[in-house]
Amino acid sequence: MALLEARELSKSFGALTAVNAVNLRIEPGTLHSIIGPNGAGKTTLFNLLTGRFAPSAGRILFDGRDITGTRAHRIAHLGLARSFQRTNVFPAFTLLDNVWVAAFACSRSWRGLLWRRTESYAGVSAQARQALNDVGLIAKQSELAREISHGEQRQLELAIALAAAPRVLLLDEPAAGLSPEETRRMVALVRALKGRYTIVLIEHKMDIIMSVSDRISVMHFGSLIAEGTPAEIQRNPEVRRAYLGGMAA
């Protein structure tokens, strides 16, 4: 059974249909990529899946449960964590505090919310440090988020998503704006996370997509036009016309 499923999911903004009757099944343990030209509706699809926008039509199922219309903060508690395409961290916080609030959000007990010191939550702090360690930022845990490099902020973005110990990780262009060297590091990171999490990945860089994905869905003007393994997608003539061809031109 699919862990995350979209059925005939649509979203319109006035006359514009950003997501048009999308059917998507994310199998547990896989890395499923969503590709498509700019403006194809990929980020909007993420915003629907994570409850930031309510869909205009269609249903979303998580672990067999209908979560359509559930608000973002509740969906996060179910185990869906996302990273953002534009870096979206807490700039005035230290790196550790950035991941700490993420880990605390999904900790099972909020006892002492008003009076316990944050350092006394050993489990939450350990989970936060683990997330920083996973992305290789543990050495910089006391630095402020606004003072680290863009590449490191992208890693932090990922760590915040990881800190919530999610069941599904939705990564929106984790390599956006990274140098080739930083991109290599990010790819290695995503590959290391593969298998530990069910991952849905939006990415533009085809070499990344082809090398890490188990399955690929192709979006074009709000609709899914193809789905398959990397090899199948590369052979698909419609995809070549809509996307790969467009890039070559």
């Binding site: 994570t50 973002a72 509740r74 996060a76 508690h77 979206n88 916080f93 959000a105 999904c106 944050t118």
Partner: peptide, 18 residues
């Protein structure tokens, strides 16, 4: 911490589950 997180970035705080 949570209140300061909301001050810093409301959208992200919501996405984290607050």
């Amino acid at each position: 911490k949570i209140l300061q997180a909301i001050r810093e970035n409301e959208v992200r705080a919501e996405a984290l589950g607050y």
